Simulated assay, not measured.
Amino acid sequence: MRYRKEIIIQSEKSMLRDNKEFSWTAYYDIDDIYKYLTNMSKSYSNWSELIVGGKTYQGRSILGLRIHTPSQEYTPKPVIFIESGIHAREWIAPATTTYFINELLTSKDANITALRDQFDWRIFPSVNPDGYHYSYTVV
């Protein structure tokens, strides 16, 4: 069993970020995920803003992104709240969530843009950044 666990850990470590550009072919540490959120909030400032969901035990901010396109009727839209990365070793959840954010902000697909425009999104890729960082750096 220990041998199998070591192989899995080595396999995961081989997928750690090794390039400068954010992609979905590797896993990133929490600081890189937060940098991605910050960059997206700046690149799509008409539709998105960086939001803070609180502070962790170790003092990190729990960062997320609010995605909201202007409503022509000026009526409130239903809010969809997504949180992921609750458990430290859930590396795929923050990766999936950042991919979802990317699709909402960059896609030209009519189905996706309709989703973006119909709701007020609050998305947090990792609500456990302390644990995520620990599992990323210590494992």
Rank of each mutant, 00 (worst) to 15 (best):
I80E: 09
K42C: 05
K55S: 10
Q58P: 14
G64I: 04
P78W: 05
S84N: 13
W47Y: 03
F81D: 00
H68K: 15
T69E: 13
G53R: 04
T75G: 11
W91K: 07
P70C: 11
Q72H: 11
T69H: 08
Y74A: 12
S61G: 15
N46G: 05
Q72D: 06
Y57C: 11
T75E: 09
S45L: 00
I82R: 10
I62A: 00
W91M: 07
S48L: 01
I86V: 15
H87Y: 15
P78Y: 06
K42M: 05
R89P: 09
T69R: 05
E73A: 10
K55M: 12
I92S: 09
Y57H: 13
W47E: 03
W47A: 03
R60W: 05
Q72L: 02
I86G: 14
S84K: 14
T56H: 10
H87P: 15
L65D: 04
I80K: 07
I67C: 14
I67D: 06
P78G: 11
E90K: 03
I82T: 13
E83G: 11
P76S: 10
E83I: 14
R66C: 11
W91H: 00
L63V: 04
I92T: 02
I67S: 00
G85A: 09
I51D: 10
T75M: 13
H87F: 10
G54N: 09
I86Y: 06
S45R: 02
E83H: 08
E73Y: 02
G53W: 07
S61I: 01
W91Q: 05
A88F: 03
S48E: 04
Q72V: 04
V79W: 03
S84W: 07
L65K: 02
A88S: 05
P76Y: 01
T56S: 14
V79A: 07
S71G: 04
P76C: 01
K77P: 06
L63T: 07
I80C: 06
S48C: 00
R66V: 00
L65R: 03
P70F: 02
V79T: 12
I92L: 08
R66D: 09
R89F: 04
V79G: 02
A88P: 07
L50A: 04
P76G: 12
G59S: 02
G53A: 03
G85C: 10
G85Q: 08
Y74F: 10
V79R: 04
T69V: 01
P70W: 00
S43H: 04
Y74V: 10
K55D: 07
I86A: 12
W91S: 11
G54S: 04
L65P: 03
G53I: 08
L63D: 04
G53F: 03
Q58T: 15
R60A: 00
R89L: 04
L50D: 13
G54T: 00
R60I: 05
R89D: 13
R60Q: 07
V52E: 15
T75H: 10
S71D: 08
P78K: 13
G64Y: 06
